[in-house]
Amino acid sequence: MLSIKNLHASIEGNEILRGIDLEVKAGEVHAIMGPNGSGKSTLASVLAGREEYEVTEGEVVFKGENLLELAPEERAREGVFLAFQYPVEIPGVSSTNFLRTAVNQVREHRGLEPLDAVKFLTMMKEKMKLVEIDQKLLSRALNEGFSGGEKKRNEIFQMAMLEPTLSILDETDSGLDIDALKIVSNGVNQLKSKDNATIVVTHYQRLLDYIVPDFVHVLYKGKIVKSGTKELALELEEKGYDWIKEEIGQAAV
């Protein structure tokens, strides 16, 4: 589904991604871990199409298409979804209008009829249950004044509404209490199918108890320096990143 080869990206002249290789197949869950500043969000942003980042080398193929050629909205319509690490507050834009516009633009791209107000509301109600999000929240401006946890929940709610094929969750678990974590994970798991894939970026192994990954990758200084199964996450939780840094150090010698 997604194939990243030797991806290099920089911002304002600083190279942040220094040759990423990653293959994600339908039905898989990949976890990406790594210390602060290693480039996890950068990778997520580049995949979503943030223009500030310049891709200097490499390729990204998504469902057989060159993803890097598409505008962010085209990627979203093709099925890429990024749950932001820091969702943006947008005063004055109502959550409902925003979602309806988004859902209908995505549907149009997929050759589906736009949803009228009634059908849209029915869909919304159904998906709201999935992440146990309060209706009151959605009657407000988009993310405005939402707590950290509410913002994260809203991201997963949007994901449920847009039905993506590739979801990239950038630290969706950070700042959530255990109850919220369970609800969010439960939502993600229910949306999982053999046809879609998920990349979860996280610092905490605890999330991976709920969203069980098929692969765990360690991103360090803009490269994937180690890949393994979920046991790798446990090892990282216990030992931190120093041993990996040492390993790399030795390899370089």
Partner: peptide, 12 residues
């Protein structure tokens, strides 16, 4: 904010 909306499929 613009990127956020685009990332949800809304044209620029």
């Amino acid at each position: 904010a613009l990127f956020y909306l685009q990332a949800r499929g809304i044209g620029k």
